[in-house]
Nucleic acid binder design. Structure first.
Lengths: 152, 152
DNA sequence: ATCTGTTGAATAGCATGCTATGCAATGATA
DNA sequence: TATCATTGCATAGCATGCTATTCAACAGAT
């Protein structure tokens, strides 16, 4: 029997903490993706935003916020940088003076294939030694953790 | 047979991209942890740093960098904020004028229990509906992905 | 003892994210 | 129609992280 079982809480081990590992893993994913898409003139958050726009161009800022699950202020800043970099254009809507449609430039449209290939390569690097089943399980567990935290 | 199998790459689905999910998950972990430890006057990166210091006080900045796997500049900035907030003290080493020992204040030492409890609670929230086996698998898969990206 | 290379930290500059505010355009209602 | 609440964005301010650069202290070698 462990002598301190009822006296001390188990030490917090960061190597086994899902939150700690998630943070470390996400930083490594971002770092790897950044290196791969930098030659394209893209940053990770810009790529993420383009994922939504490649799916459907001309969305509203609030629609992008809902799809990508970031705060509105974060999206506003990312869009400002993308506009600066010639990736998108903001067009004020005719039917509602508050909102704008976000439209990709030809430059952004052309980046679709190389950028998604880069992201796939990064995912492949991270999961190189995973079996197909492990990949599916991994994605499913992440989705469940995300859903649980959303419910909270 | 899918008509476009040999013509178009499969659409990139962010909902199934490990990198995308890792980013989203890490943000939710951080957000949840932040809410829980804010009453303690702690921020997530400060908590992470204290995890290393609770384990062993008086470490060097470069030792903390190695343990927590962040860049040296990131650690320097986090330590500056922790010093500002009265959590740590930097003491120049007698044996090496370049390095400093990072020492916790009584305030930081006292936060150990409530802060680790908060982190445990956040982990529990995220993995609420996981079985014990799923938790172990999840942690193991994250560790393997991290290791693979480190090798890259 | 001096020169050179290395190492530990700080700083600058920037991207991402967040919370909190402010503001203008809409919408709903008395 | 005047008022009030809601909605869509922008901005301020800050924490985290990263890359790149600089600087001082140290270590080794001649």
């Amino acid at each position: 029997m462990l002598f301190n079982r009822y006296l001390l809480p188990m030490a917090f081990q960061k190597e086994r903490s899902p939150g700690f590992l998630a943070n470390q893993m996400a930083r490594l994913f971002a770092k790897g993706l950044q290196q791969r898409i930098r030659p394209l003139g893209l940053a990770p958050a810009q790529f993420m935003t383009l994922l939504a726009l490649w799916d459907e161009d001309g969305q509203t800022q609030s629609e992008l916020v809902r799809r990508l699950d970031v705060e509105q202020a974060t999206m506003a800043n990312t869009l400002t940088r993308m506009e600066r970099d010639g990736l998108i254009e903001r067009r004020t809507r005719l039917d509602d003076g508050r909102s704008q449609s976000i439209h990709m430039t030809p430059k952004a449209i052309a980046l679709r294939d190389p950028a998604t290939q880069a992201a796939r390569a990064q995912n492949e690097t991270a999961l190189a030694d995973f079996t197909e089943q492990e990949r599916q399980v991994f994605v499913e567990l992440m989705r469940r953790a995300i859903a649980a935290m959303h419910r909270d």
